[in-house]
Design a protein around this nucleic acid. Structure first.
Lengths: 126, 126
DNA sequence: CTAAAACCTGACGCTGACGTCAGAGGCAAG
DNA sequence: CTTGCCTCTGACGTCAGCGTCAGGTTTTAG
């Protein structure tokens, strides 16, 4: 598979894939002419990288954790890193849930004020 | 309250507070000599802003939503914005939970491989 | 064979939420 | 009065994850 196809299948840009390689996150074989070639498994790997990025991990951290995700083997240090990232994500979830609940309360209050007409509705009805 | 005290109480930097003012998120009265003065309520406001930043909202979006958080009144457009941000946060929570679960699985597998000695433990015991 | 599409390597641009430095003015304490 | 801390206004620096453009090669479709 070449880079364009991988980009489509993984839902990222070609530029992103080259960036991942630059960061050591995604290896690529090369054809004699220098074009990158990826195995099918690369799709899952890219998706995983995206998932970790979305969770707020940096390239460097992902680079440290990726091997042990695939080998299920980690040094105590890496294990500690894993646990710390897990806890961070957990805390982030808790915070986000609180924010969501707060927004829900605001939405409920604002909706009520609209339906009850207890606020001046000078906004356009169109 | 002056800016330094507010910064400490809200747990942010002085620079951040000036930035919030620049973005229109935080008003400030001025002493005749030009120093910013904040009421006690500013602490909560700053904390709220921080919470929204942490949820991935931009300054612009926060600026649009802050008034209706305090007035509990919103135009339909603003209400739609609120709902869309809420849903985005909800989706983010779902994704983060999946990532956390994946990390949990990795941690479990790696811990097992260590305790079972089923992997070469050539890492330093110190 | 040829034109279009895909790929290559640099390398600069972008964005947002601040950090940081410079130079100058205020403010309570001794 | 002056010492030392707080504050002020610019204004440039940072960092990460790419976007984008330039100029050239490779692969593919017809």
């Amino acid at each position: 598979m070449r880079i364009g196809e991988l980009a489509v299948k993984a839902g990222v840009s070609v530029r992103a894939l080259r960036y991942y390689e630059e960061q050591g996150l995604l290896g690529a074989a090369r054809t004699p002419s220098g074009q990158r070639t990826y195995p099918d498994g690369a799709v899952d790997r890219v998706v995983l990288v995206q998932q970790l990025y979305a969770a707020g991990l940096s390239s460097r951290r992902i680079l440290e954790l990726l091997p042990c995700v695939y080998t299920s083997y980690a040094t105590p240090q890496t294990l500690a890193l894993l646990a710390s990232e897990r806890d961070r994500i957990d805390a982030q979830i808790t915070g986000l849930a609180a924010t969501r609940d707060r927004l829900d309360a605001v939405i409920a209050a604002a909706t009520a004020s609209v339906t009850d007409g207890c606020a001046p509705n000078h906004y356009p009805e169109s």
